[in-house]
């Protein structure tokens, strides 16, 4: 009986970060009626992929990241595969550097996010321009990067709280990229 309740507890604990991830994914799409909503998109999913690629890459498998990207592309009208490509590259690059990043103070993590978010937005802008043979204005992209960087500490705090709900994994699992 206790084994079942332990399993249930484990399941519920794992559900917490996935629930937060799903909520942030939906927030990426929900219609916020504000004077700035048509120019600024807050990159919640990039924040999620960046955070978990450092602290628990096993939580976001490449397949999950790929599917999340496909769903986001389908919902937002993006060329299919564009977000998946960007998220997978972020996941791979950041998780390759996680041994360095894990021990760093938050300021370094924040700075790292700034770099990752700027590069991903730039790559997305270039690929979109190449695919449509039309360069869209760059100013909204800059606003998006700034909004993402400014909001990252709050979202990182939220993700950190959901991280605490997770059961600790044996070293051999947490080390797997």
């Amino acid at each position: 009986m206790s084994a079942i309740s332990e399993q249930m507890e484990m399941f519920l604990r794992i559900c917490v970060p996935y629930g937060v991830m799903f909520m942030l994914f939906i927030f990426n799409m929900v219609f916020f009626s504000t004077p700035l909503s048509t120019t600024i998109e807050i990159p919640f999913v990039v924040m999620v992929v960046y955070y978990w690629s450092i602290y628990r890459p096993t939580l976001i498998s490449p397949l999950l990241v790929f599917i999340a990207g496909l769903c986001l592309d389908s919902l937002s009208g993006f060329p299919i595969g564009l977000s998946s490509f960007v998220f997978l590259v972020i996941r791979k690059t950041v998780s390759d550097q996680r041994l360095f990043l894990t021990g760093q103070p938050f300021m370094v993590i924040w700075l790292g996010f700034g770099v990752v978010s700027a590069l991903s937005a730039l790559v997305q802008w270039m690929l979109f321009g190449l695919m449509h043979m039309h360069w869209t204005p760059f100013q909204p992209v800059i606003f998006t990067i700034i909004a993402g960087v400014l909001l990252f500490p709050i979202i990182a705090l939220l993700l950190n709280l959901s991280h605490r709900a997770l059961p600790s994994l044996p070293d051999q699992y947490s080390a797997v990229k």
């Binding site: 219609f31 120019t39 998109e41 919902l75 937002s76 993006f78 802008w125 204005p137 909204p140």
Partner: peptide, 8 residues
């Protein structure tokens, strides 16, 4: 839902 971003 709104895809009001820089691209679409």
């Amino acid at each position: 839902a709104d895809a009001g971003n820089a691209y679409v």
